[in-house]
Design a protein around this nucleic acid. Sequence first.
DNA 1: TATAAAGTCTCCAGTTACTGGAATGTAAAG
DNA 2: CTTTACATTCCAGTAACTGGAGACTTTATA
Lengths: 128, 128
Amino acid sequence: MNISQAAKLSGLSVKTVRYYADIKMVEPARNIQSGYRSYSNDDVAKLNFIGKARRFNFSIEECRELLSLYQDKNRSSKEVKKLTLAKIASIDEKLREFHSLRDELSHLVNCCNGDDRPSCPILDELSK
Amino acid sequence: MNISQAAKLSGLSVKTVRYYADIKMVEPARNIQSGYRSYSNDDVAKLNFIGKARRFNFSIEECRELLSLYQDKNRSSKEVKKLTLAKIASIDEKLREFHSLRDELSHLVNCCNGDDRPSCPILDELSK
DNA sequence: TATAAAGTCTCCAGTTACTGGAATGTAAAG
DNA sequence: CTTTACATTCCAGTAACTGGAGACTTTATA
């Protein structure tokens, strides 16, 4: 199938699918006549896989790792679990950051009149 | 003072401070002899302000807005509050995403043996 | 005072993961 | 046969820096 079909089935944009071909992550066959990329069902499965992994916040490099594990029928689940646990830890870290950020900001907002006067505790805090 | 002093006082890297000068956010005076950037206390205050706002996840463009509000003695607190509330909303959005991400991943991890066998529900899920 | 080390300058390239657009070629529909 | 849709490559831009090269200035040491 052509690239737009593969994009549709995998839920990615054509640009993105072409990008994944460029960086040699999913390299489809080529139609010799037209030069068009020709995607197999297998290619689409990989695109799907990558799309999900990306949505799970794995980086492209991590996707590459996962993909090679995914394609290796003799891999152990240990490696995958390790990668995933590390990802969870980094998400937890981000969650902590965002939570404290949110708390600080909403505290500031609560102290701010939000009227037409220039006095503003948010700016006061930022300038400390 | 020279750039490294300003960087130290503001808690930013020299590279970052120079970058802020390049993008005309904090433009210090210049020593005519040496061509070195010469930072005033006022400049450092602005750098501080920006550093905090960045840590609060405001973008450079938002920092520019906040900075101009900060420097405008006749501004109203309404605008600042609005900007901040929008920021909180986007943080909440990110928090929701990360939470559901985390939940899904930890569910997968709990189902995975993590041994030397190839069976792995994480990869199974990704390949669906 | 000579020299070495530290600090600073500009400019260019790289990062991440795409996205947009131009110019051009191919395929399908009317 | 022409229009339209889809495809190709290549180049540039995004955000917010960071790293490094090569050259210049200032400061510290011998």
